[in-house]
Nucleic acid binder design. Structure first.
Ligand SMILES: [Zn+2]
Ligand SMILES: [Zn+2]
Ligand SMILES: [Zn+2]
Ligand SMILES: [Zn+2]
Lengths: 160, 160
DNA sequence: GTTCACTTGATACTCAGTCTCAGGTGTGGG
DNA sequence: CCCACACCTGAGACTGAGTATCAAGTGAAC
């Protein structure tokens, strides 16, 4: 099943109607490469000439967030964005600071580390969030190529 | 040196004037137990009958953030808050979800873990953020006592 | 004391997100 | 099939955080 389908299924399983609007949001969400905002979805909807209210998009994203089908990130800039993710397993996100692409990262040893920190400080830890930012392989390659071109090659790809 | 002094010193070392307004913000920040917002500071300033503009508080907090004397958190609720912290060493924050008290947590093994994740995914990691939420020892004790009182004791502290 | 860069406050503005409420829609029971 | 009712939706008002602007204030340095 494709991602759109998985999102819709999650809605139905939780007892929500899979209305045309919500299907549309699911589709828009599934079509994003990386992180996105409510405004992004609205804009893309507008481009495709579909009519959907702002409040409806926010409501759908709230639902999907509750269902853990999307998650809200806090970017280094301080602004918020959503990413689509796997609802079935606790994990964190690795986000490309250039293209916005995001991938899930297994919690792995972090759980143990978090536990230990809680014990050491006497805190009863309820939740944690880990966010990682950096260049994805594609963007890193592109950046290296650009830098190399500017300093060692003909420079034909750099502004003069 | 007290915390207010340390904050002011950080400003001066970075070449900023330690104006009365900035000293006031330093004082208000240092006086907070846990996390706070710009609005909190403004409100407390107002109560103490000092006059300071909203924009000035935001500007001062931006400065202090740049100097790493305070850090912006993203609370589980999605809203932002600031915490005062140690500018000299990379670390993360452990925040009480009941009283808002916050403490610094050494990065420790996390750096290694982050490294490994980067390598595994082929990302060139530039930044990471870890935030931990839970009950501080005091609040955990209080919560336990309250629960015990409601179920096992006279119940004189619970609403009837 | 004059000067000039830095700082400030008032105010207008933007933008994300929420609220409200009247109207629409889908679903399940009869 | 149709009704009733819960659910869903859109428009638009509203909130609150943060930013932008700009004229006026202030402080350090010569
Ligand atoms: Zn990328
Ligand atoms: Zn985790
Ligand atoms: Zn506490
Ligand atoms: Zn770290």
């Amino acid at each position: 099943m494709n991602q759109t389908g998985r999102i819709i299924q999650a809605l139905e399983r939780a007892g929500y109607q899979a209305t045309p609007n919500r299907r549309l949001v699911a589709q828009l969400v599934a079509a994003t490469g990386g992180h996105f905002t409510a405004a992004d979805l609205l804009e893309r909807g507008r481009l495709e000439r579909v009519n959907i209210g702002r409040a409806t998009v926010f409501r759908a994203l709230d639902l999907l967030t509750d269902l853990r089908v999307v998650e809200r990130l806090d970017l280094p800039s301080g602004s918020h964005a959503y990413v689509v993710c796997d609802p079935d397993e606790h994990h964190h996100h690795l986000v490309c600071s250039s293209c916005g692409h995001s991938e899930d990262v297994a919690d792995g040893e972090l759980a143990r580390l978090v536990d230990e920190i809680g014990r050491r400080h006497g805190y009863q830890i309820e939740a944690h969030r880990l966010e990682l930012f950096g260049l994805c392989p594609a963007c890193a390659t592109a950046a290296t190529a650009a830098a190399g071109g500017a300093t060692a090659a003909t420079g034909e790809e750099t502004v003069h």
